[in-house]
Nucleic acid binder design. Structure first.
Lengths: 145, 145
DNA sequence: CCGGATCCTAGTCGATACTG
DNA sequence: CAGTATCGACTAGGATCCGG
């Protein structure tokens, strides 16, 4: 009864519902769910942007900074280290003078691109609707009656 | 040369690369990119969880709270209002006594489920790899030489 | 039962200055 | 060039009290 339809595109509904039931059944604690940690990472201000930049080709430290104008060196360093720690990017140091460092995606990092592209596409397509809903909501707020 | 293969699944690489080139070409400012705002929303601590909960069926206020044990009323209220403002969820008030409110996904909200399910699936599948990479990285840090 | 208002803490991020 | 260190502003988020 819980079988997903194999040939057809199963509704995202079912997919997520199944997953959620698994999570919330038994004593699986949502609080400790590792997926949450990962999603939090993706949600932070810079990770996704850096991944997208590196998706094109490996970049050097300052190159990334130029591609993302409003990131500070501090955040760039920190986010890169987090991504490296999670095995999403590689860090190659060339002992040239002055030294140069090149960052690139690992296989794991590249495997993120596909779901990420889906999400970005959705965001682009939905952006007008969201903007509309938002202004409608705000208008209703400011003129209640 | 830049044509995407139409019949085959185009690599996420190309998809994102195209998108990024569009973004960074001309004077399109990444800072103002509306997609960033949307991704930030998804990344905050509670929105995704609430959307997943509501994906199963409409819920009442306290029901959501019980499904997500470690959320405070404050954050629940705030996140729900943000989602409502963005047109992702509906809010129906029943003038019963005591009053009850039911939240449910709109079409727009449901359209998010699919890309979200992709991402969650990816996160679950990649979680072991990430854990491995993380412990390897930490081990290398604590014993440098 | 639903949620608004207020207070307060803890983490996050940016700017700046400094090292190798 | 590629970071590290320190400080300070900002803000997300939890606790609590209150009203409908």
């Amino acid at each position: 009864m819980t079988g997903l339809r194999a040939n057809n595109l199963p509704s995202a509904h079912e997919c997520l519902a199944q997953r959620f039931k698994t999570w919330s059944s038994g004593e699986f604690d949502l609080t400790l769910c590792p997926v949450r940690g990962i999603l939090d990472r993706l949600g932070d201000k810079w990770t996704t942007l850096i991944v997208i930049v590196l998706a094109q080709r490996p970049h050097r430290f300052s190159e990334i900074g130029r591609a993302i104008p409003d990131i500070s060196k501090r955040m760039l360093t920190q986010t890169l280290r987090d991504l490296e720690r999670d095995g999403m990017i590689t860090r190659r140091v060339f002992p040239t003078k002055p030294p140069s460092v090149e960052y690139g995606l690992t296989e794991l990092g590249e495997s993120l691109l596909e779901p990420l592209a889906h999400l970005v596409t959705w965001a682009e397509n939905s952006q007008p609707k969201i903007a509309t809903a938002r202004s409608a909501f705000d208008a209703a707020e400011t003129s209640p009656s």
